[in-house]
Nucleic acid binder design. Structure first.
Length: 490
RNA sequence: GUCUCCUUCGUCUAGUGGUUAGGACACAGGGUUUUCAUCCCUGCAACAGGGGUUCGACUCCCCUAGGAGAUGCCA
C-alpha cells in the first residue's frame, strides 16, 4: 500500500517551529517512501479562524520549498481539503454514531458545563463531563432537538475496559476507558465538528496511511481508536513525534523568542538552515553526519531513526547552520538574498539600480564570512552606500597615539592612494608595510585610522577590497574629512 | 488531582551485554589574520538514583525521582 500522509494545521496563528517540524517529517517521509503528501486545512474553529494564518501557511511552505501533492491550490481526488467545506460529511457521520447508539445528543449549556468544571476544580477532582445527557432516551432527545433545542453530539466512551493502540515509535499504548475524556463533543452546536471527529473522518476518507504528529496527541490516541472502531474503520499507523521545547524545557511558545517562521525569514535565516536544523530535532541519520539538504532528506529520512525524547530548540545551533549555508552561497546568489534586506534598510532603491547591484555583488565575498543572518548585512555594508556614520575623534586614534601623529599618517596614506587602484591588494599591503616601517609604527596603527575614516567603524569588511569597491574619490574625501577632524582643535 | 509519555555531555544526538561511551553546537584556551569574522588545533563535559538478572551492565527487568504533555462546544 502506498504511503499517504498529511499535515493538518489549523489557521489560527502563525506557523511555528513545532508545526514546521511536523510538516517536514510528514513531507520527507512521503518523499522517501514514494508516497503522497497532503495539506489539509483544519478550519473548524469559527472563533479563532484567521485568514492571515492561512496565507502564512502558504508563505511559510512556499519559502521552505515544501510542496504538497494534494490540498489547497492544487486540489486532488479526495478534496475538498478545507474542513469548513466538508461539514456535511461530518454531520452525516455524527448522525450515524447517534443512530448506532455510539453517540448521543447533549443539551447541556455552556453555563452548566462551566459551573460543573469550576466545582470540580474547587474540590480538586478530576475534570470532565458528568455524562448527564447520556441517559436521555433517544426518542426524547430527538423530540427536543426537533423542537429546536441547541445540542451537541458526544461520543459514548465505554465505561469499562481499556483501549490500546500501537505506536510505531513508542510501542503499545494502553489507557483505561474510564480515564479517557468522558464523552467528548464530536459535533458542536454550531454544526461544525471538533478536531476528533473531523480528523478521524478525513483521515479515513483521504486514505491516510500514517499519522505523524506530535506527542502531545498521545492522550487522544485511544479516543481516536474508539472512533475508528465505532465507524468500523481500520485506523492508520500512528507515529507520535517527540515534542520541541523551549530552553526552559516547556512547550515552545512566543515567550521563548521568535518561533514563527516568518520571523526567522525576516531576521535573515535561510530556508536551508531551518530545514537542516529542524530535521535534526528528534531525528538523526548516523553518528556523525549533520549536513542535509532538502533533497538529501527527501531521500534519506526514515521513521526508524526517530528519537523518543523531547528536543530543546537551540537557537545557537540554528545560527551556526545559518552561517554555514550563507557561506555556501555563490556571490550572485548571496547578492540576491541580500537585496531585500538592503532595500528594507533603505540602502538601495526598489528596484535596485544596476550600480547598486554591482556594488552588492562585489561586496558579497567581503561579508559572506561575517554574516550570522542576512539581516546583518545592511549594518556591515552601509558605508558602501552612504557616508560613514559619525564616529568620535578617539576612534581614529589607536592606543598610545597622538592626534598629530595620526594626522601625519593619514596624510601619507592619502598620497599612497594615488597609486592604490593600479596595484594589487598584496602589492598595496606591501606598500603599507613599507610605509609603517618608514614611520616607525605598526601596520595596525596605519590601517585602523584608515578603516575608521573610510567605514566609520573599527570593525569592517576587509579594508583594501572595501576601498576598491568604494572608489578613489569617496575614499579620499573620507580621508580628508578624518584629517580635518583631527586637525580641529578640541 | 488523574492519566499518558519521556530520561546519554549545558544543548542536539550516536552507540554496544565487555568501547578510552563517538560526533556536532555552545563554552574555554591556542594558532592563522590589517579589524571583525572565517578557518585550523586543543580542552571541557554525560549514561537521573536504587534494586535486581548476569562472570560482566549505560545497554535487559522492577522501583523511585525528575521532566513534559493531556485532561475544552481549541486544535
Amino acid at each position: 500500500m502506498s504511503v499517504r500522509v498529511r499535515y493538518a494545521p489549523s489557521p489560527t496563528g502563525l506557523q511555528h517551529i513545532g508545526g514546521v517540524r511536523t510538516a517536514l517529517f510528514n513531507y520527507f517521509f512521503a518523499r522517501a517512501m514514494g508516497g503522497v503528501f497532503i495539506l489539509r486545512i483544519e478550519d473548524t474553529d469559527q472563533e479563532r479562524y484567521d485568514p492571515r494564518a492561512l496565507q502564512d501557511i502558504y508563505d511559510t511552505y512556499d519559502w521552505l520549498g515544501i510542496s504538497w501533492d494534494e490540498g489547497p491550490r492544487v486540489g486532488g481526488p479526495r478534496g475538498p481539503y478545507f474542513q469548513s467545506q466538508r461539514t456535511e460529511l461530518y454531520r452525516e457521520y455524527a448522525q450515524k454514531l447517534v443512530d448506532s447508539g455510539e453517540g448521543y445528543h447533549c443539551f447541556c449549556t455552556a453555563e452548566r458545563l462551566e459551573s460543573l468544571r469550576s466545582g470540580q476544580e474547587a474540590r480538586g477532582e478530576g475534570q470532565g463531563y458528568d455524562r448527564l445527557c447520556r441517559g436521555i432516551p433517544p426518542e426524547e432527545a430527538r423530540a427536543r432537538k426537533a423542537a429546536g433545542e441547541k445540542c451537541v453530539v458526544r461520543l459514548k466512551v465505554p465505561l469499562e475496559g481499556s483501549t490500546s493502540f500501537h505506536d510505531r515509535l513508542i510501542g503499545d499504548i494502553e489507557r483505561a476507558n474510564r480515564d479517557i475524556n468522558p464523552d467528548p463533543v464530536l459535533l458542536k452546536s454550531d454544526g461544525f465538528p471538533t478536531y476528533h471527529l473531523a480528523n478521524v473522518v478525513d483521515d479515513h476518507f483521504m486514505g491516510i496511511t500514517h499519522i505523524l504528529r506530535a506527542q502531545e496527541w498521545i492522550p487522544s490516541g485511544p479516543l481516536h481508536i474508539l472512533l475508528y472502531r465505532a465507524f468500523g474503520w481500520t485506523p492508520p499507523e500512528y507515529c507520535h513525534l517527540p515534542m520541541v521545547m523551549g530552553e526552559d524545557g516547556k512547550k515552545l511558545s512566543k515567550r521563548h523568542g521568535s518561533t514563527s517562521l516568518v520571523e526567522f525569514r525576516d531576521q535573515g535565516y535561510l530556508p536551508e538552515a531551518i530545514i537542516n536544523y529542524v530535521s535534526l530535532l528528534g531525528w538523526s541519520y548516523d553518528d556523525t553526519r549533520q549536513m542535509f539538504s532538502r533533497a538529501d532528506l527527501e531521500r534519506l529520512f526514515s521513521l526508524d531513526r526517530l528519537n523518543k525524547a523531547a528536543a530543546v530548540f537551540d537557537y545557537k545551533k540554528l545560527e551556526w547552520f545559518n552561517g554555514v549555508y550563507i557561506r555556501e552561497k555563490p556571490d550572485a546568489a548571496l547578492k540576491d538574498e541580500l537585496l531585500p534586506f538592503m532595500r528594507r534598510a533603505g540602502l538601495v532603491e526598489d528596484p535596485a539600480t544596476p550600480e547598486q547591484e554591482a556594488v552588492l555583488l562585489a561586496a558579497a565575498p567581503l561579508v559572506r564570512e561575517r554574516l550570522r543572518f542576512l539581516g546583518d548585512a545592511p549594518e556591515l555594508l552601509r558605508f558602501l552606500f552612504r557616508d560613514p556614520p559619525p564616529y568620535s575623534r578617539e576612534e581614529l586614534l589607536p592606543k598610545k597615539t597622538e592626534p598629530e601623529e595620526i594626522l601625519r599618517y593619514l596624510g601619507e596614506i592619502r598620497s599612497l592612494m594615488e597609486g592604490f587602484f593600479h596595484r594589487s591588494d598584496p602589492e598595496n599591503e606591501e606598500e603599507f608595510r613599507l610605509l609603517a616601517e618608514r614611520l616607525h609604527t605598526r601596520l595596525g596603527s596605519l590601517l585602523m585610522p584608515l578603516r575608521v575614516a573610510v567605514t566609520g567603524s573599527k570593525v569592517s569588511p576587509p579594508l583594501f577590497e572595501s576601498i576598491r569597491i568604494l572608489g578613489k574619490e569617496k575614499t579620499v574625501a573620507r580621508l580628508v574629512a578624518a584629517m580635518e577632524m583631527l586637525a580641529a582643535r578640541e
